[in-house]
Design a protein around this nucleic acid. Structure first.
Lengths: 257, 257
DNA sequence: AATCATTGTTTCACATAATGAAACACAAGG
DNA sequence: CCTTGTGTTTCATTATGTGAAACAATGATT
């Protein structure tokens, strides 16, 4: 192997696999060799090897290769949440240290926000949130962030009947109000929840994108309203955004769902 | 590379990945090396390479490796139905040639039967089924087969309220009748639909298992009731079963869903 | 029909790059 | 404080993957 200890053949194999996408599902050997920048002979043997493993599938009609069932199988063994959490957790820790408040990581799951990780601040007054908990989309920082950066139609799917459950006097109670707020969130790239779900609880949230610009999760910092001064919020947001960027670099172009 | 043209490093990489399973999600380097029968040094470099690609993820707490998000990503790019169809299609062709009737391949999709492949018989009177069509579970041969070999709870999930939509006078209209029929199907390892969905249409169906014994799809032969004599059915069933076995050998331990 | 330009595939000499033994650094446990 | 485990690095050796060229088969163009 080369000096750095990286196995070149394995790297080649996976960069080859990366070329298969939704828009280009079939590749011939020489065609792939040109794009890969690897000799056609080598490329052929790589693809033949992958086919013998079931990782690629060779279409007997045109001798072109497509991704095979073995990859499907392996891909479904991955513990997604766990991995996402493990990659993000160190960042949550940093954010919580810096902001000195509780930081959450949430994803879209079954039309609610599922909190998949949390690092508590050191302060005495804490939240009673817990990992694994689901909360409504329309009245939480995480939820509104996740919704704001998805396709517009989700607002209709979720709130087509116009019913937004009200939790506090501050809850956005109409679809129009929510849509205005979502527009604001898209513009400023962060969401604020001012006691919309729970009285006395304020929360700022930013999106976590993958390298393809798709929203994967949302980060939030939350705390009691008398500690969460308006003057702090901008600072919190910029810190959270840096964290989201670092997570982006770790997860690459990971796709959720 | 070795004489056969197979790239050894790539084979090692994937046999290594195969060791990750639902029950054993984390592997240390030396531990893996022992099971693989590959030198620990080599194993380490393999795993380090895979980690740098995002295929493996190294847990910083215990230095053990788990499957990473890259695999998740790749796995979800696989056109599952297409591959399943491409592997099965030649067998469907053979079955149709032998039985001289239309043969279908169906899978469970969104609580219905999705017909993902079809080979028409040469006979004049044909069915108006088409690939991509979804049909009800409880009154089709494919559907009842798929249901019979899944966990019992699915009957309750689908028909918990006791409502079975009736299509013809022959449709099984109560949950109890359906459950009795499912028991019979499990016993004799095939299902018959005698005009339960469409008047004049008879259909025999057998399960397609993977090598782990999980049901992946169902095969059926269908035709008009005046051509589908009772005396033929047993013969059709045994032919279909052989086809299902050959498909099993092609798909290996492929897991659906 | 015949030519041309593709394709996937195989061969073979060559040098790169993967290999295994041993040593290293760091932990945890007795 | 030694022992035993771990992940990791080093280095000489040679197995192993590589690229140029040739082969066989296909489809399009002339």
């Amino acid at each position: 192997m080369n000096a750095s200890g990286i196995n070149n053949s394995v790297v080649k194999a996976f960069t080859l696999l990366e070329y298969f996408s939704g828009s280009k599902t079939q590749w011939g050997v020489r065609e792939m060799a040109r794009h890969l920048g690897v000799h056609e002979s080598t490329t052929y043997r790589l693809m033949a090897t992958l086919e013998s493993l079931g990782v690629l599938y060779k279409n007997p009609e045109n001798d072109k290769y497509a991704l095979g069932l073995k990859l499907y199988d392996l891909g479904h063994r991955v513990k997604v949440f766990e991995t996402l959490v493990q990659l993000s957790h160190p960042e949550l820790q940093k954010l919580s240290d810096e902001i000195e408040e509780t930081v959450h990581l949430g994803i879209w799951h079954k039309d609610e926000v599922l909190m998949i990780d949390k690092v508590e601040g050191e302060k005495g007054l804490r939240l009673n949130s817990r990992i694994g908990q689901s909360s409504p989309i329309h009245c939480t920082g995480l939820g509104k962030t996740l919704l704001a950066f998805r396709e517009d139609c989700f607002v209709d799917i979720l709130f087509g009947n116009g019913e937004l459950e009200v939790y506090t006097p501050f809850t956005l109670s109409s679809k129009t109000m929510l849509q205005e707020n979502l527009k604001l969130i898209r513009n400023q790239q962060f969401a604020i929840d001012r006691q919309e779900f729970e009285l006395g609880l304020i929360c700022v949230s930013v999106p976590v994108f993958n390298k393809d610009g798709e929203i994967i999760a949302a980060l939030s910092a939350a705390g009691p309203s008398d500690r969460f001064k308006e003057s702090h919020l901008n600072n919190y947001v910029s810190i959270l955004k840096e964290g989201a960027d670092r997570i982006k670099n770790k997860i690459g172009n990971f796709k959720a769902r």
